[in-house]
Simulated scan of single mutants.
Amino acid sequence: MRNSVFISCLFVVMFHYSCAQNIENQASKAENIPFSAELLIDEMQIPWGMAFLPDGGILVAEKSGELLHFSNEKRTTILNTPKVYVRGQGGLMDIELHPDYKNNGWIYISYASSEGEGKGGHTALMRAKLKDNKLINNELLYKAGPNTTKGQHFGSRIEFDNNGYLFLSIGERGARDENPQDITRDGGKIYRFNDDGSIPKDNPFVGAKGAKTAIYSYGHRNPQGLVKHPETGEIWDHEHGPRGGDEINIIKKGANYGWPVVTYGINYSGTEITNKTEMKGMEPPIHYWVPSIAPSGMTFVTSDKYGADWKGSLLVGSLAFQYLERLELNGKKVTSREKLMDGMGRVRDVKEGPDGLIYVAVEGKGVYKLVPKK
């Protein structure tokens, strides 16, 4: 019996590996890198999220709970930040400006919070304004529950779409058999809100008995990438698989993305989770990684700063292999992969700034600016 289980698991691993290791899943080292990596902000431990202010400053969220403002080579710690539950993968996470920030000043922050029912914490969303290096008008918009002392899978990223809706990703908090497939429970979901935290009337599960009406899509594992496509306006996410099976998905209203019923991954022990990689009624990923790269942070390249080959590419950070990955796309299909900043550290976030340059947050280092070569 043990031998048959081992052979079955080995087959799954080999099958996934062989299916994934084509041109779409072969990251090669870059030969003609069109940039130099300049360390802009140093001495940071886990710079989780970044946001660019209209005055040229940058806000950087440290997982430990510190919010940093960097401008004109000066760094300032922002006061009156939320009380953060720091455990495992949880802490102060993403930060995003309102699309009309110049007029309303709202800043959105996701973080692990111990407020609410039970011991431990869960992912929360708040908004505030910045004045004199201090957050003011702090408002808690959403708090997932119940709390748990588990340290994994808080998510979490924030993104706005073209209609002004706010999207938030929350991981399944290590409860894969309870949370991601159950719309009455938080976790393993992408949520959609109005900008004030209220629930849009056309959210897919409004009116469903017992449902968390903020849910927009479900069946996710741990999404740590969320970005709006610059041309289509679609919201794209990427999420951690287990051992293998990291995914890129295009988020659709009410859709089920399958975790853990379908996956290209296996348990960390090497045992099988499921023999299904697809199923009717569940959205397949547009791309998956085997082996896992542990993706975090994601941005589209829209500027011409790095040449024609880069424009339209998708950049994704790798925690596991400590590099930045560039994926070339043909529509919704990944056609090639390129490895950048290889070995420079765990890439936690990547953003294209309003100046058209790419900024990369690396654990244990800080924030790099990719300066184009002339």
Rank of each mutant, 00 (worst) to 15 (best):
R2M: 08
S4K: 13
I7H: 14
C9L: 08
F11I: 12
F11R: 13
H16V: 14
Y17D: 06
Y17S: 14
C19L: 14
Q26E: 15
F35G: 02
E38L: 13
D42R: 15
E43W: 12
G49N: 04
M50E: 02
F52P: 00
P54E: 11
G56P: 15
G56H: 13
L59A: 08
V60H: 04
L68H: 14
E73T: 10
K74H: 14
T77A: 07
I78C: 06
G88P: 03
L92K: 07
Y108K: 04
S110D: 08
E115K: 13
G116H: 06
G116P: 07
K119A: 15
G121M: 05
T123S: 13
A124Y: 00
L125E: 01
A128E: 06
L135P: 06
E139S: 09
Y142V: 09
G145S: 12
N147E: 04
T148K: 11
G151M: 10
G155A: 05
G155S: 11
S156G: 07
F160H: 05
G164M: 07
L166V: 10
F167P: 01
I170C: 06
G174N: 04
E178L: 10
E178V: 07
P180I: 00
T184W: 09
D186H: 15
K189V: 04
I190H: 00
G207H: 09
K209N: 14
A211S: 14
I215C: 04
H220V: 12
H220I: 12
R221T: 01
N222D: 15
L226A: 10
E247C: 03
I248L: 05
I248Q: 00
I251G: 01
A255F: 15
A255L: 15
W259T: 00
P260G: 05
T263Y: 03
G270N: 09
T277N: 06
K280W: 09
W289D: 00
V290L: 09
G297R: 00
G297L: 00
K305A: 10
G307E: 04
A308R: 12
D309H: 08
W310Y: 10
S313T: 03
S313Y: 00
V316N: 00
S318T: 01
F321N: 11
Y323S: 05
V334L: 02
T335Q: 09
K339H: 07
M341S: 01
D342P: 03
V347L: 02
V347G: 00
K351Y: 03
Y359S: 03
K365Y: 13
Y368R: 03
K369P: 01
P372M: 08
K373Y: 04
